[in-house]
Amino acid sequence: MTAVVAVADVLAVLLLAAGCFFVVAGTLGLLRFADLPTRLHGVAKADNLGLGFITAGLVVHALAHGGGIAGGGGGAGGIVAKLVLVWLFALLGTAANSHLLAAPARPEPGAEEKPEREPGPGPGPETTPEPEAPATREAP
């Protein structure tokens, strides 16, 4: 019994560490990336993966300890169900969020009264020529 709990603890710590790594990666992406689509790319995927790992770690912890840290509280079933529900909500919500945020945006909120015939040097979002992945690997 104790050995099982110890193994579960190690597994939970590993899952939590992986979750922390991904959440930190997503936050760094939000802070350091250049424009909105790349920021969304960092936030939407890495952060959800981090939340999934943390949720999995807490599920393992709840299954091993049956509730809280000291083993108090009710059974682990409700806790596991709620944790999984949090993660599923986050997946659905982030998919909808990212689609809405990355939808082809009007350049400015008051740009509708302008005619559509100055697409070139307009105030639209500048299209960076190199999208991502700086090719710092070995050159061919």
């Binding site: 997503g26 939340l51 943390i54 000291a70 949090v86 969020n97």
Partner: peptide, 23 residues
């Protein structure tokens, strides 16, 4: 708003961890 979406996800993770921590 993108930052707010990240705050929602990360804040949920923080609250879940705190829920286990403080029972």
């Amino acid at each position: 708003v993108t930052a707010f979406a990240l705050l929602g996800t990360t804040g949920a993770a923080l609250l879940v961890v705190l829920a286990t921590l403080t029972q």
